[in-house]
Each structure stands twice: as C-alpha cells, then as structure tokens.
Design a protein around this nucleic acid. Structure first.
Length: 482
RNA sequence: GGCGCUAUCGUCUAGGGGUUAGGACGUCAGAUUCUCAAUCUGAAAACCCGGGUUCGAUUCCCGGUAGCGCUACCA
C-alpha cells in the first residue's frame, strides 16, 4: 500500500489523555508500518473551550512518547474560510440548507418529544422552506445554521477495518448541523473537509465515532469525493467499566510522566490495550511494534486500563535500561526533586552511578530514586516512622549500632565481603541474630525498611558515611527510647 | 426511549466446530533470604443466558441480557 496518509486530530479542550494517546499511537504505528505520512491536526473549532497552552501540552506529551508527526500541526481555526466554501458548495448542490430554528426552539421541541416518549430527531422544519421564505430570512440577516440534508431512504453502510461491515438506515440519521450560527464549522464539516484536503486515506479513531461515520460518508458522497477507509478503535475504560475519566485518577499522559512512568512503558502498555503482538510477546519495543502492527489484529471490545500492569511494565523497562540511559534519567529526577549535587557529575560520579544501579532492579518508577532512594544521593533524609517501628524495637540497638560503627571505621577494605564479616562478628559476639542488626542498620543507612542488600548499600555509601550514619542512628534511637 | 457496537479467568488477551481452553498482570502457596523487590516452582481463576444448526458447540445463526457508544449550534 503506497501513499498511506493518516492523522491524529486532538482538540485542545483538555490534556492528552491515555485514550487519545492510544489513538495517536495506532495511527503512528500504522503510518510507520506502511511508510506513510502521519499528520497532526488540531481541532479547535470549539472556540470557547479551546486553549493554546493545552495545545502546547498535547504536542509535548506526544513528543515525549516518541510519536512524531510528519506534517502539521494544522489548526482548523486557520481554515475557516475553506469550511464555509465547502458548506456553500453543499447548499448549492441541494445537499444542505439554512435552518432558522433557534437553539431554544429546538430544545423545547426536543423536550416535548422526550416527554411524549417519542424518539427525537431534528424535525426538518426548515428542510423545505419556500424560496421567498428563505430569501427573506437571509435578507433580514436572521441567525441560522447550515444543516446537511440526509437522504430519507436507503442506508449508509461501510466496511470498518476493525469492526467489519456496519452502518445505519438513513432515516435514523438527522439533518445534522454543518455550520453554526456564528459561522464556525461543526466537527462533522471540519473532519470531512480536512480529511479530504489532506488526502487522508485511513481514518483511525476512537469507537465513539463509529455511529458518526455514516454522516460523514454521506458528506463525501454529496461532495462527489472519494472516501477514506475507516478503522475504529475500542474505548479505554476505568476499573468500573465506565469510560475512563478524571474520577478514575490520572488520565493525562503528562500525569504519568510526573509519576515517573517511562514513555516506552506507557507506549507498550497502551499498545496492548486492543492489540496483540504476534507470538504473544508482551514486552515489545516501538520498532518491533512498527514492524508487526496490523489493523486486522485490533480487538473490538473495550479495555479496562489496569494500573497494576502498567506499573509492572514500567519496572520491567526500568530494569532493562542501559546504564547511560539510567544515569541520565536519574540525574534528571534528582534535579527536579532538588536532591542533585554537582559533585555527582565529578568526583562523586562513582557513588552516583553505583547508587543508581543498585536501586535500578527494585524501582517501580523513576520517582523512587528521589523518594525511597533519597538516602543514596543525599545526607538529608528522614527515618521512615514505620521502619523505625519495625526494626528499631530493642533499646540495646543503640549501643550495638555504635559498636558496629566503630568496628566498621577500622574495616579494610571497606567492601561487601569485609563489611558483612564485620557485622556478623559483632552479632555473634553479642549473641544476636545477624538479621536484627542488619535490619536496624538498614534503617540507619537508608531511612527505609525496604532497601537493597545492606552490604551493597554500605559499599556504595562508603565508610565515612556509613560510620557517621550508624552513629547518628544510635543517637536517634536513644532519643526514641528516652 | 431510538440507533449502533461489544461479550473467554478479577484485568489485558490467544484460540477456535472435537483443545487438559493457552499466555501476561494481579492473587495465593512454597523455595531463596538480611527487609523488600527480583528470580524459580506450584496453585486457584474464564468461554453471559436461552434456543437453533450439527454426530458434536465456547466457537456459526437467532433471541435475550448486560456493558459501552451515538442520539448537541462538543469533539
């Protein structure tokens, strides 16, 4: 298939949410797979709700995810003239007409129909206005919209690339609005005009548009224009199976970035919502997805967004990060958390790197490096109250930690093996299980009950810090028990 | 209400007229251990219901039910 052109068309009325991101991803994958063009278009015809900084945020999120576009971004607000022109063409051809019904009138009629339990559809009041009536309305400058004249009979069916053959009876489709009374186009006019002008070959979008598609196909026909292929994507739901929204927690791509999710993990996770890679291998790099992606493998049923699996996938990606990539990421995280020290770029580089590596296998998000892992990069950290409660129970621990501190100050070389030997010797001498001393020391050195192996921690921190922190902890412990 | 779409473990899904219905996340148990994670082993866990077609349906067809979507001068 040559000359494939697809587009992603967010509207800047909110941040890029994961559903939109998945749509963008599938478009992008499809384009890359076929060597086609991925167009970015901003659908900002809703002037009241569209915001410039939201557009910027959307572009940032897409860039962060690696979904770069080949053309655009185009803005519908910059093409208003073109939409009016097309609407006029439709009117001339008898496929559309001005409608003078006001919003209030319409609402009243709709309410009445509903009260009488009649299915409401625009009643066509202005569908066949007498020419003089029409002229008068225009001459008097009465506010009006332009409606599309939907055929009264027949059906509009199409072959969706995901859902298969589907469509609607024309009699079930109302004469929808093309141009608002303020002259701005509605979504339906905008998409068709743009997809036409941008020579989009495949419209890949959320399944919430499945029922809208016949309307748009009717427009292509009225225009005598070739229509694109359509592929609708199942929706992403919250755990309660309701359409994903803010009340389910974070939905914006930017929020996941803030939480320390890697773009690769998010992308991979999103791809698995509705698409199964061949071979069933779930960890799939972007390039691999590009190679394997097929619309025909997209599922038809909605998918629940499972945070647990995203978290797992994130730790999986974190664990397999190359050292260079890891260091860059951790550096960035420490900086934004205010934990970064310039020495980490110079004389303390080794400590920084080994600390990052030590934390790598157990990190769930990049935030962990500055949060639970803070003590590896800063001397300014707190003892977690829960950790103290769990491992600093015995009062004698204060003396023991001090003793250990003193022994360690003479341990040489100060490495994993020797520090362990030293600690176990102290434990034995005091007739104590090594675990008790180890756990207490862990809290002393990291502030946490959960951290990497103690002797690795010691080796990374270095003698000076370990000795100091153990002594400090002993002091703290005495205070606690006093 | 009308129209449309969908329906396999809790979740994401594979599969498909005859299978021990497969995998992943999660859960549980065990191993390991210095906490946790990782790792390894094992376990529990699903074809929405009713008809039809068929020698045989989870799979095909119809109906029901449920969920979702559309039903705006939102997109």
């Amino acid at each position: 298939m040559a000359d494939i052109r697809v587009r992603f068309a967010p509207s800047p009325t909110g941040y890029l949410h994961v559903g939109g991101a998945r749509t963008a991803l599938f478009n992008w994958l499809f384009a890359r797979h076929h060597g086609g063009v991925f167009i970015l278009r901003i659908e900002d015809t809703d002037v009241d709700r569209s915001k410039q900084d939201l557009e910027t945020a959307i572009l940032e999120s897409m860039t962060w995810m690696g979904l770069t576009w080949d053309d655009g971004p185009f803005r519908q607000s910059e093409r208003l003239g073109r939409y009016r022109e097309l609407a006029a063409q439709l009117v001339r051809g008898g496929h559309a007409y001005p409608c003078f019904c006001s919003g209030e009138e319409l609402q009243a009629r709709r309410a009445k129909a509903e009260a009488e339990k009649r299915a409401w559809k625009y009643d066509g009041a202005c569908r066949n206005l007498a020419p003089d009536e029409l002229d008068r309305g225009i001459a008097e400058n009465r506010p009006h919209v332009i409606r599309f004249r939907v055929p009264e009979t027949g059906q509009t069916i199409f072959d969706d690339q995901v859902f298969g053959s589907t469509g609607a009876e024309n009699r079930d489709i109302e004469d929808f609005v093309l141009v608002r009374s303020d002259g701005n186009p509605t979504y339906h006019l905008g998409v068709v005009a743009d997809d036409l002008d941008m020579r989009v070959t495949h419209v890949i979008r959320g399944a919430d548009h499945l029922s809208n598609t016949p309307k748009q196909i009717l427009m292509y026909r009225a225009l005598g224009a070739p229509q694109p292929l359509f592929a609708h994507l199942p929706l992403i739901l919250g755990p309660d199976k309701q359409r994903l929204s803010k009340r389910h927690g974070a939905t914006a791509v930017g929020a996941y970035k803030e939480q320390g999710i890697l773009p690769e993990a998010l992308t991979n996770f999103l791809a698995l919502l509705g698409w199964t890679p061949p071979e069933g291998k779930e960890i799939v790099a972007l390039e691999e997805m590009v190679r394997a992606f097929e619309l025909s493998a997209v599922s038809k049923s909605n998918a629940v967004f499972d945070l647990e699996k995203l978290a797992w996938m994130n730790s999986e990606y974190l664990r397999h990060l190359s050292p260079a990539h890891l260091y860059a990421l951790v550096e960035q995280e420490l900086k934004s958390a205010g934990v970064w020290h310039p020495a980490f770029a110079a004389e303390e580089r080794e400590r920084f790197e080994s600390g990052a590596r030590l934390l790598q296998t157990r990190a769930r998000t990049v935030r962990d490096f500055s949060q639970t892992g803070r003590a590896f990069f800063s001397d300014d950290f707190e003892y977690d109250p829960e950790a103290q409660k769990k491992f600093w129970k015995q009062a004698e621990l204060a003396d023991l930690l001090e003793l250990l501190s003193e022994k360690l100050s003479r341990t040489d070389p100060f490495d994993i093996q020797e520090t362990e030997k030293t600690l176990r010797a102290v434990a034995e001498e005091k007739n104590l299980k090594a675990g008790v001393l180890i756990n207490a020391s862990r809290v002393a050195l990291t502030g946490q009950a959960v951290a990497p192996g103690l002797f690795e921690v010691m080796a990374v921190l270095g003698r000076e810090r370990v000795v100091l922190r153990l002594r400090e902890a002993a002091k703290q412990l005495r205070q606690n028990t006093a």
